[in-house]
Amino acid sequence: MKNEFIAPSRGFERSEFEQRTGKLQQQMAVQGIDAVFFSTEHEFRYFSGFASQFWQSPTRPWFLVIPAKGQPIAVVPGIGAAGFDDTWIDDVRTWPSPRPEDDGVSLLADTLAEVSKQTRCIGAMLGPETHLRMPIANYQTLQASLNQHDMVDVSEIVRKLRSIKSVAEVDKIRFVCDVTAAGFDFLLENLHAGMTERQACKAMHLEMLRLGADACPYLISASGQGGYDNIIMGPTDRRLDQGDLLIIDTGANFDGYFSDFDRNFAFGDVDRATHDAYEAVYASTEAGLDIAAPGRSTGDVWKAMWSVLEAAGSLGNDVGRMGHGLGMQLTEWPSNVQGGDVILQPGMVLTLEPGMTFAPGKVMVHEENILITEKGCEMLHKRAWEKLPIITR
């Protein structure tokens, strides 16, 4: 059957979790940190392998403690204890949640105190692009319980670790990227005037699920005569008509890893300026592909792409960046920004996402997913069409 893909194995070998934890512990030793605790899904899953749909519920908190040496310790609601049988975690400490008066806070505090007796320094995710998945009052209670300890931010350490993907991680991302690209090909063959944005997105969504995606939690669209001006709100029930330009931007997921790229479609005749804008963002992406390599910075990538857009007459780009990291989250650190100083390294997965305002109220955006290799970069999926595709149906 056309467009059938072989999915990589789910999960990871125990050795991968050991390596991830060991790298974190090395950095903890350098900075004199006795223990780190995590309360958000992605960090919890990254170091433990525990994956549960219970994260969708705000009722119960979940904590993972990583000591200076040895395995992580899970501090979790009793309802989730059995889920650790399939992980590498042996030490699982539970309480009968939900218990609002003390929903795991004292158990977490006791665990942290137990493993942080040397420097009395405890790390948590406290920096940009992070959050603590616990009520502020509970965090304050935790701090009061550990008032002889210092709380420090480890988000920079963790985001650097997570930014370098293993071969197994890349295999999952590559698979879901291939599925997404095939979904766009399917849409190209089945789009027609008269469909709504929502119908177009749903058709693509179902095809990606058929091809092996687990879910597609991010699938947006925008359309308008000869262009669009907002790319974060759709899909809507607006019917596509001759002269319209449609963008669909999607992040499908397989085994906890995302794709994130878009495609543009024109319906019938659109003016020359729209075609020129498409070709400009395509060329801008080419410039990003040419320069993205180990030793280059995120600022270098931004500058290469923006130079093309500026030469093409762009009226601006108010998105704030032109691409970002990709992996367990739809958007990850780092961002491709003007003056960005993050140095690219082999194993990083990034999006290249140039966008331009090419006429008042009209935007053109393009996005691809790449892997930084030892010698440069490679696409993780089929490249976009070089010319703006025209839907004549």
Rank of each mutant, 00 (worst) to 15 (best):
I136C: 06
D260M: 01
I372N: 08
I33T: 06
K375Q: 11
S39G: 14
G212I: 07
V176P: 02
G226R: 02
P128S: 00
A252N: 05
V176E: 01
A181L: 01
M356H: 01
I89D: 07
M379L: 15
E207D: 13
S15V: 11
C121G: 03
T141E: 10
A168T: 15
I173S: 04
L142H: 05
A137G: 03
F44Y: 15
E286Q: 15
E114A: 12
P67L: 14
I390H: 03
S221V: 00
G11H: 07
G295N: 14
V337W: 03
T111S: 14
T87Y: 07
I370N: 05
A304T: 09
Q25G: 05
H205G: 03
G234Y: 08
R210N: 15
P8D: 05
G376K: 08
A82N: 13
K160G: 08
D318T: 11
V363C: 05
E41V: 06
I247C: 02
M305K: 08
N190K: 15
A113Q: 11
S52V: 07
T59E: 15
A283Q: 12
V365E: 04
S48G: 03
P8R: 14
S284M: 03
Q27E: 14
T250V: 08
G227C: 02
M134F: 03
E367F: 01
T285R: 14
N253Y: 05
E286K: 14
V115M: 08
M151D: 05
Y282H: 12
L146M: 09
K165M: 06
P294D: 10
D153M: 07
A144S: 11
I248S: 01
L64D: 10
D110M: 09
D90K: 15
S259T: 04
I173C: 09
V154M: 14
P77L: 05
I6R: 11
F37E: 08
K387P: 00
P100E: 09
H192L: 07
L246D: 04
T351F: 03
A277T: 07
R99L: 11
V152Q: 13
Q345P: 00
D260W: 00
A280E: 01
G313P: 11
M134L: 15
G183N: 08
G83Y: 04
P77T: 05
G355Q: 14
S39Y: 10
D271S: 09
L132R: 15
M1I: 06
T357N: 06
V105D: 07
F258E: 04
N230P: 01
G339H: 08
Y218I: 06
K117P: 00
D255F: 10
E18P: 02
A51W: 10
I220D: 01
Q53M: 14
D178K: 12
V176C: 07
W302G: 01
H381L: 02
G123D: 12
V36F: 13
V167Q: 10
